[in-house]
């Protein structure tokens, strides 16, 4: 529906007349989703979840003072998937671990995103010919950002988070990558 000064989706979401008035006054031009995505993109909460050595670079080093994930507002590593909205798949997924990766992903509330970090999470990496390794996180769950490397440097993980922020906020990511 078109958003005008007289007509706005907020009226269907609440009966609070003061809130409706405020929203109509301030953001009647902007779709509400865009405001939400602005907030989502700047406060991604990753799941504190590491599978292998990539967790050292992707969660610990990136979060530590030198690279300082907090600068971007992403440092709130959640210990429960129910509070997280980004899963950083950091490491090799073995066949035994695969059901738990899927279960953790399914426990995360919508909207949720996935970063596949390192060659193991992208494709199975050096262990792809093994008898017990899943060839990539995207065989199990949808992946938004792939970070190549073995392990990727923390800078690359920061860049992945910023690409994800751009994706969340609806910018064209691939144009910038070229």
């Amino acid at each position: 529906m078109d958003v005008t000064r007289e007509q706005h989706p907020i009226e269907k979401m609440t009966n609070d007349s003061s809130l409706i008035q405020q929203v109509k006054r301030v953001i009647h031009l902007a779709p509400l989703e865009k405001i939400f995505n602005l907030a989502r993109g700047y406060s991604l909460w990753p799941l504190g979840f590491g599978l292998a050595c990539c967790a050292i670079e992707g969660l610990m080093a990136t979060n530590a003072p030198r690279f300082d994930l907090s600068r971007f507002g992403y440092e709130v590593l959640r210990s429960s998937p129910r509070q997280a909205d980004v899963m950083l798949v950091a490491g090799t997924i073995t066949n035994k671990m695969a059901p738990y990766v899927v279960r953790l992903y399914e426990q995360m509330p919508e909207p949720k995103w996935v970063i596949a970090m390192g060659s193991c999470a992208i494709s199975g990496g050096p262990f792809v010919d093994s008898y017990y390794v899943v060839p990539g996180a995207d065989k199990l769950i949808p992946v938004d950002v792939y970070v190549p490397g073995c392990s990727p440097r923390p800078d690359a993980v920061l860049h992945a988070f910023m690409m994800l922020r751009d994706k969340v906020q609806g910018k064209v990511v691939l144009e910038n990558a070229r």
């Binding site: 199975g124 792809v128 010919d129 093994s130 008898y131 017990y132 390794v133 899943v134 060839p135």
Partner: peptide
């Protein structure tokens, strides 16, 4: 038993 020399398996490569 995967560490036996005669163990046969299919890897994940596509």
């Amino acid at each position: 038993y995967p560490l036996r020399k005669d163990f046969q398996w299919v890897g994940g490569r596509e």
